[in-house]
């Protein structure tokens, strides 16, 4: 829940806000602007770091998928490894975000942020091991 909304909210920051103002109707522009403002003010820097990483992973995944569709899916194992590493890393990072988000503290009472990061790091290492094994 949380990662999806934040990722969607984060996206406009990558495009230029000024262009958005000119092309969008005033009401929508205001809504986006206020959303951005609220995000900037209420989100902790740690969550912003996670969100930046998530956006990066999403862009990398989309680029690889577009290359696969438009150019070639050969060798297919390399595509699966590259695309899978983005998707897998995205899922792991998103779950880290939901576990360290102070807003979700009630749902993850017995998981400390350190424990959550350790899980994330271990999962990522295993993921990368499989990815490089599959890549060549």
């Amino acid at each position: 829940m949380a990662p999806k909304s934040t990722a969607a909210a984060k996206q406009p920051t990558t495009s230029t806000p000024s262009a958005l103002h000119e092309t969008s109707p005033a009401a929508a522009g205001n809504a986006v602007q206020s959303l951005l403002k609220a995000y900037n003010e209420t989100t902790s820097p740690r969550l912003k770091l996670i969100d930046a990483f998530l956006v990066f992973l999403m862009i990398a995944g989309v680029l690889q998928f577009v290359y696969c569709v438009l150019v070639t899916n050969f060798p297919f194992n390399a595509f699966l490894a590259g695309f899978g590493s983005c998707v897998g890393q995205f899922v792991l990072t998103a779950s880290l975000r939901s576990q360290v988000n102070p807003a979700n503290r009630n749902e993850f009472k017995d998981v400390s942020p350190e424990r959550a990061f350790a899980d994330f790091a271990l999962g990522s290492v295993v993921l990368h091991f499989f990815v490089y094994n599959f890549l060549g």
Binding site: P75, S85, H128, V131
Partner: peptide, 13 residues
Amino acid sequence: AAWPYYIGAMSTS
């Protein structure tokens, strides 16, 4: 032909 995928996997790491 697979360099985009290699770069993708390496950039993730």
